[in-house]
């Protein structure tokens, strides 16, 4: 099983929930499928979904809710 990472496509602010009163998109240890949303990046007054580009298990998130992120920054380790 190869360890891979999900990278942020954009710089901005990372959110792990669809809205403040909703549950997390994904938690450490959850399984993800290709195309599943794992978080949002907010930039220029809009929110952009970050989707998994492979199937696997999220080993851990590397960025916390509402933390700033750079383009290309790893958001989560995924065990494919």
């Amino acid at each position: 099983m190869a360890m891979k990472q999900i990278l942020s496509p954009l710089p901005g602010t990372f959110y792990r929930r669809p809205s403040p009163d909703k549950p997390l998109f994904k938690s450490d240890g959850d399984r993800v499928a290709v195309g599943e949303v794992i978080g949002l990046v907010e930039v220029m007054k809009s929110f952009h979904e970050v989707k998994a580009d492979q199937d696997g298990k999220i080993v851990r998130f590397l960025v916390e809710n509402e933390e700033p992120v750079m383009a290309g920054q790893p958001l989560a380790d995924v065990d494919g």
Binding site: L7, P9, L10, P11, M70, A71, G72
Partner: peptide
């Protein structure tokens, strides 16, 4: 294009 490295 690859990921943005610098600038905006």
């Amino acid at each position: 294009f690859d990921y943005l490295k610098k600038g905006a």
